[in-house]
């Protein structure tokens, strides 16, 4: 039983997610997998117990558009991924700045095989 995902580009994400929401999908969660030099982000949605998955692949150090403006529920998981993998999300509505779980003194991203450096621009938060 393989996982069927729809591969999309980073730029299409917002539009794709918004169209899923329009037809009544519930945001389930977002999974992140370290592929070495890039990350796989898999968005899981559910409607009447049928699941749909979207997959985007981003290079390490890239930022990803946040979908927390569309689904508020994405906020927790995006913050979690920022903590664990160091992926920065643009437009997170409540940004914990990489300290959702982890303490200030943590310098490494614990779930990465090769730790990535956080891009300076993402530091500010809001």
């Amino acid at each position: 039983m393989a996982l069927e995902t729809k591969n999309i580009a980073k730029t299409q994400l917002q539009a794709e997610v918004a169209s899923l929401k329009a037809v009544g999908y519930r945001f389930v969660t977002l999974s992140c997998v370290d592929l070495g030099d890039s990350f796989d982000l898999i968005y899981h949605f559910d409607r009447e117990l049928q699941m749909t998955h979207l997959r985007i692949t981003v290079l390490k150090g890239d930022t990803v558009p946040s979908i927390s403006n569309i689904y508020f529920a994405a906020l927790c998981i995006e913050n979690e991924i920022k903590d664990f993998f160091g992926i920065s999300f643009d437009g997170l509505i409540l940004d914990f700045g990489g300290h959702f779980y982890l303490e200030e003194e943590v310098k490494r991203y614990p779930f990465c095989k090769v730790s990535v450096k956080e891009p300076q621009a993402a530091k500010e938060g809001n």
Partner: peptide, 10 residues
Amino acid sequence: RVRIRTPTFA
């Protein structure tokens, strides 16, 4: 990878 999304998280 094993990714766990627990109910309370949601």
